[in-house]
């Protein structure tokens, strides 16, 4: 599923506009606990989270996460946005809560991330 399609499904805004909207996302992981993200196998995954601090970007980079979507219209600060740009990780913000965001994407055919 492309980033563009994901943004449409979630009525999401793209936080940094320099990003490639055709990047392919293989699956998704919903979590606020960063160790859960690190526990799963998430290369080329989408992370759906309610946290917006810089360490979320670093977790994503280490876990190979391709894109992050922040729920409940949360917007990260400039420091986080800069770090994400530097790491080439596109950021989205959706008005949906984590449940609705997960539900919509799952219903649209996006699978969950691998658990191994």
């Amino acid at each position: 599923m492309t980033l563009k399609k994901i943004a449409e499904i979630l009525d999401a805004t793209i936080i940094s506009d320099s990003d490639d909207l055709n990047v392919q996302i293989l699956n998704a992981c919903s979590a606020d606990m960063m160790s859960a993200v690190l526990y799963y196998h998430t290369p080329n995954s989408l992370l759906i989270t309610g946290l917006t601090q810089p360490h979320v970007i670093r977790t994503a980079e280490i876990a190979g996460i391709k894109t992050i979507v922040f729920v409940l219209n949360k917007k990260p600060d400039a420091l986080t946005i800069d770090l994400a740009k530097q790491k080439k990780i596109p950021l989205l913000s959706t008005p949906c809560c984590m449940y609705t965001a997960s539900g919509r994407l799952f219903s649209a055919g996006l699978p969950g991330c691998l658990t191994k």
Binding site: A36, Y99, S102, G103, R104, L105, G112, C113
Partner: peptide
């Protein structure tokens, strides 16, 4: 055993 994303997806449906 389902991860959060998948469990949410199924319940949503």
């Amino acid at each position: 055993a389902l991860p959060s994303f998948e469990a949410s997806g199924r319940i949503y449906q």
